[in-house]
């Protein structure tokens, strides 16, 4: 069934599903963790961060209020942020929420704005952003979202699947951007992918 907008409850469901997907891939993400410190805890850190956000959203009860849901996502991930990747995730969510909270329903143009804001917020929170990491994949997803919005795409299934594909394509190229990744023959983190999963 084609749909063109997400309401508060649907956003909650998507968010919870994304968090579950992240947790399910936690060990695999831990194995990919080679930059900046190869301590193998990225998956764990991101899972803890997003679960804190999920809990805060679930504590709201069965609400459709986009503002409350976005605030909960943002403050929950801030509170529960662990590790560099957790902080990045909390910043992505913070930026996304700043746009999403002002709308009752999220359409493709609004999602493109929200993804842009997420990426801008994340990039601004560090003095020297490094390409070939989460940032690169997030930016690619946001740029693709903007492109699809400009093209007038309204169907969310099409939107999400194209954004996800772009994120995965760029993810595959990250070893060429970050030498240490190439050395380890590894790849970077799939934060955006889990955002888009539904």
């Amino acid at each position: 069934m084609a749909s063109s907008a997400i309401d508060g409850r649907q956003l909650t469901a998507l968010f919870i599903a994304g968090a579950a997907n992240l947790e399910a891939n936690k060990d695999w993400i831990n194995e990919l963790n080679v930059f900046p410190v190869p301590d193998g805890d990225t998956g764990t850190n991101m899972t803890l961060t997003i679960k804190s956000a999920v809990k805060e959203v679930q504590d709201l009860g069965n609400t459709d209020n986009m503002k409350d849901i976005c605030k909960a996502m943002s403050s929950g991930s801030l509170r529960g942020a662990r590790g560099n990747s957790g902080v990045i995730l909390s910043q992505l969510i913070r930026g996304f929420s700043k746009v999403a909270r002002d709308h009752d329903k999220l359409t493709v143009p609004i999602l493109a704005d929200a993804f842009d804001r997420a990426v801008v917020t994340a990039y601004k929170a560090v003095m020297k952003p490094k390409e070939g990491t989460i940032l690169t994949v997030a930016k690619a997803a946001a740029d693709k979202s903007r492109e699809l919005a400009d093209q007038g795409v309204t169907d969310l299934d099409e939107f999400f699947s194209q954004v996800l594909k772009e994120a995965e394509d760029v993810l595959a190229k990250t070893p060429d951007m970050l030498p240490v990744l190439k050395e380890a023959r590894a790849s970077s983190i799939r934060a955006e992918r889990d955002w888009c999963s539904s």
């Binding site: 410190v37 301590d39 801030l78 942020a81 560099n84 957790g86």
Partner: peptide
Amino acid sequence: GVNIVAVSDNLVSSVRY
């Protein structure tokens, strides 16, 4: 808007490494 404890912990472990 960042978790100061998480940021500090991360700085400490990254610097140490």
